[in-house]
Nucleic acid binder design. Structure first.
Lengths: 338, 338
DNA sequence: AGCACTACTTGCAACGTTGCAAGCTCAGCA
DNA sequence: TGCTGAGCTTGCAACGTTGCAAGTAGTGCT
């Protein structure tokens, strides 16, 4: 097993170089020689050694997608889009999950040790920030996703969180809701998403002449269903519960929905809900979830394109791309179809 | 950037070998030399070249997890478990998505081209079967997951699909349901999961003295929410709709649930539902989903352990491990807590 | 017959790393 | 002074591949 060029060459009675020429389909090989070598290749079940090729050629054909959590549907769906885009260009994508652990992020992205097996990285950081990324010793090109980093000197794709959150909140205002809550605020400096969406939430309320009521803005540790369910329970325990909630992602909204329904309340009649991410779960929940839908395909396409440009030697200034989004109206705010 | 040992050696005025000794913390280096070299390392921002190391050492420290679909929550959750297990042993896991495409599966698993970058593979095949896998030319160890392959001559971890499906169906029988349907049957030879679960479904009905009604066993193309929703619509359109449905995975069940609720029917009062996989979505749906819960941690642990054994040179006969499962009772069959 | 040219094949070196064994320097001791 | 050995450093070779340039043989032309 794991025959090498040399072993094949010995068996076929030709030089290593000639075997390589056959393997790589070089035209300058006599038909007879080619047949002889091919037979030896088949007999030994030769498979080229990818590591040696990579060392020699400087290209592995592998791109790593480094994400916080794969079991968060948004990331799983984004992954699909990235894989499709990269396949078009002949690249294989492998995914790595960091859990936002700074140690793992650093190991994968900063130290060449593991990262250098890949031609490039698409990285959604949670722990690492501007400072870390600026003095990255490795020269493997990186494209950043998400809002964690503001000024990293690297290509960067994000969405306008403030604007999107404002749009979601304004939708609830337009529905005539009076006490609009928010679930997903975050204080930790490594979690900027929550802060930005709170900004948008406040902006929408203020520009509608509404007051921002502190107790209606609930912080969470993670953007998971359990956090949404817990935060919603707190909101329902208030003397004056909300009649609408903007959840900073769909998982929070699905958790909140579960809590609301389990109390016998109705959505949207008693409480309207808006989520963020447009994951598939939200289209099949009952009621289905009104949500901000980021253009995942655009994000993936841009990320892969920027990375490929860098691999082709593009030395231009880092790009900063803001991907599009729309508000998808569904039953959790519009009510069930009759 | 991307300084090499040689460049560091020149700068420090020592040999390449000495720099390597410093980098690898060999004891036999004079303190003064070490300091000098360290300075050069820092100044040049040296990072070891992982590809060259792998070529030299024959180990990359990377394991590939090759799965059909990452945006199927079961796989995403399994991935988390595998990553955790592998991390214990110092291995990094990268995930690759095949979509069950035979070309991609072959490229990743059969041809060494891409696979050989990894020390081992954990592979859940859809397209490749026994015949393909038996004459795999690559010598990278592989552990198989799932039911696609029966006799591949490779380590293999599965669950007892027939028994689990029987348990799920019997639960519905025990609830006194009269017309128990099944969603998820499959005919394609590459999709054995559906066939096995149908076997279990039939076995349960027969051992309870029930007839198997053909029109109540609905086939699907994929195990996705949309397929479940469509199949449920067909069932509801029957002259005598079912009063219980065993869905072959939770996504199908969630799709079916959506259809049922959208018709104004109640779960479980009108129709009881059982799923399979125990994904997080099913715990937060309303009603929450009774489901077969495969022991994902056991699957992951065994898979990683078997693979590591092979990497350590274990040459024993391929293992065939059946992972455990339980039936998780939730609201979709037991009703809401009052 | 001699030469040029085509058609094919080959050896060398290098990608960046590390195991091995040999090398050097110097202190300590007889 | 010469020898031993400890302490440290080094050169060589190899992992498996491919670019480069040079090599060989054979054909056709003059």
């Amino acid at each position: 097993m794991a025959a090498t060029l040399r072993e094949v060459a010995e068996r076929a009675g030709v030089s290593v170089r000639t075997v390589s020429n056959v393997v790589n389909d070089f035209p300058q090989v006599a038909a007879e020689t080619r047949a002889k070598v091919q037979r030896a290749l088949d007999e030994l079940g030769y498979q080229p050694n990818a590591v040696a090729r990579t060392l020699r050629n400087g290209r592995s054909g592998l791109i790593a997608l480094v994400l916080p959590e794969l079991d968060v549907p948004y990331f799983a769906e984004l992954t699909r889009a990235v894989i499709e885009q990269a396949a078009v260009a002949g690249y294989t994508v492998v995914v790595d999950q960091t859990d936002g652990d700074p140690v793992r992020e650093r190991e994968l992205v900063m130290r060449g040790s593991r990262a250098a097996m890949f031609d490039g990285l698409i990285f959604n950081p949670l722990a690492l920030g501007d400072a870390d990324l600026r003095n990255r010793p490795s020269s493997t090109p990186v494209v950043l996703l998400g809002e964690r980093v503001v000024q990293g000197g690297l290509d960067h794709i994000m969405i306008d969180n403030v604007g999107a959150a404002e749009l979601a909140t304004r939708h609830l205002i337009d529905l005539g809701r009076q006490r609009i809550a928010a679930i997903g605020d975050q204080f930790d400096e490594t979690r900027r998403t929550g802060q930005l969406r709170t900004q948008g939430y406040r902006a929408a309320l203020q520009s509608a002449g509404r007051e921002v009521i502190a107790e209606l803005v609930r912080p969470v540790e993670f953007f998971h269903r359990a956090d949404g369910a817990a935060a919603m329970a707190e909101l329902l325990a208030l003397p004056e519960p909300p009649d609408a909630v903007f959840c900073y992602n769909d998982l929070l909204a699905l958790g909140a929905l579960r809590t609301i329904l389990s109390r016998g309340l109705r959505v949207p009649e008693d409480i309207a809900l808006v989520g963020f991410d447009d994951i598939e779960d939200g289209r099949y929940s009952t009621p289905s979830l009104t949500t901000i839908s980021p253009d995942k395909n655009q994000i993936a396409k841009n990320a892969v394109q920027l990375l490929l440009n860098r691999l082709d030697g593009d030395r231009s200034d880092p790009a900063e791309i803001s991907a599009g989004y729309t508000l998808e109206l569904r039953e959790s705010t519009t009510g069930r179809p009759v």
